[in-house]
Each structure stands twice: as C-alpha cells, then as structure tokens.
C-alpha cells in the first residue's frame, strides 16, 4: 500500500526523535509497565515505538501530535506483546498474579497490590481503557482516538472494567475471565 513505503532512508525526520526519546521515554515506559507488567518488556515496547517512529518519521506531520502518536504505538505494541505471550506455547503461568519482582512487592503497599493484581486479570482492552483514563488522565475522546474505538465504547468498557475490577478484588480467587 502506498502508505507503507520504505523509502525513508534519506529522509530527514520531521520531529527530533533524540529529543523526544530523552523527554518522554520514562513516562512511556511507565505507561507500558502498567500494560505489560515487567520492566524489561515495557522498555522493549517503548524501544519498538521509537524505532517505528524513526523508520517512519514522516508519519507525524504535526510535531504537537508526536506524543499522542507514540502513546498509540506503545498501547498497540503492548497489546501485541501480551497476545504473543498468551498464545506462545512456552508461556505457562496464566495465573501468575504476583507483582513482577520481590523488590516491587516490598515497596508496593498491600492495598495497591490487590488493585494491580485485579487489573492484571482484566481483558486487555478493559485494562488499556482504565490505564489511559486513570493514569494517563486522558479524556474519553482521547482514549477513543488512542485505541481506535468510539467514545461510546470507551465509556461502556470503562464501566464494565470497574465492575469487574471491584468484583475481582472482593473475590480474588474466582476466575473472572
């Protein structure tokens, strides 16, 4: 298709990716870790997002929209990473709901751990909507834009996700999915 040309080798980026990397890498890794749970995967996701932008610098014509572009890329890449993880034969522990590292467990308050365990058990889209809403503080329309769904779907997904979250926290041992 015309939109995926590879002839960007000599093209000057329309945005300064090095500066973007310095400015936004940390916040994007934080977003990614809320979606994929462990730091190594989160860093990979963000690295892939910047690599994709570097390959297609002309994809962002309006520099003010670059962060939004990277956010979409991070969410999509995180979703793919989770999907690969779920479908890979070698991936065994679907019920491994412990926080990622012992250090994390030590630092995170018990009440936060309960919530995060419940968040991990949500369907991917529900989790994305909640993270974008309650951590990234995006509006419904911005979430809709980021996830490629309608604002109405964002609203209903968030509502169902909160109900599911609460239910899981009240009955942590029950299978909700």
């Amino acid at each position: 298709m015309g939109m995926r040309d590879g002839a960007t080798g000599t093209m000057e980026p329309s945005v300064d990716i090095t500066e973007l990397y310095a400015a936004h890498r940390l916040s994007l890794v934080r977003l990614a870790i809320l979606l994929v749970d462990d730091l190594a995967s989160a860093e990979d996701v963000v690295q892939d997002a910047f690599a994709a932008l570097a390959r297609r610098p002309d994809a962002v014509k309006d520099p003010s929209k670059t962060l939004a572009y990277l956010r979409v890329s991070v969410v999509n890449t995180a979703r793919s990473a989770l999907r690969r993880r779920r479908t890979a034969r070698a991936y065994a522990p679907p019920h491994d709901l412990s926080p990622p590292t012992p250090e994390d467990s030590a630092v995170l308050a018990e009440e936060h751990r309960d919530v995060l365990v419940a968040v991990k058990r949500l369907a991917p889209r529900q989790r994305e909507v909640l993270v974008l809403r309650y951590w990234s503080n995006l509006s419904e329309s911005e979430i809709a834009e980021t996830l490629g769904i309608s604002p109405g779907t964002v609203k209903s997904t968030a509502s169902r996700a909160l109900v599911a979250l609460e239910k899981t926290m009240q009955h942590p041992m029950e299978e909700t999915r």
Binding site: Y21, R30, E43, Q47, H112, V131
Partner: peptide
C-alpha cells in the same frame, strides 16, 4: 485504582532504565 497505578508507575525511576542508545542512530538536524 488511580493511586495503585500511580504507585506502580512511580516505581520506575530514571536510574532503573537500561542505557539504551536511541533506537536508530540519528544525525542531529
């Protein structure tokens, strides 16, 4: 939820990040 997400995210500090170079070597403008 807001508090838990924030706590989890804040656990990632700049010093925790790997010393990745940029994804591709880019020549400054």
């Amino acid at each position: 939820l807001r508090a838990a997400l924030s706590a989890r995210a804040e656990m990632v500090q700049p010093e925790d990040l790997s010393h990745h170079a940029m994804a591709v070597p880019l020549r400054r403008r």
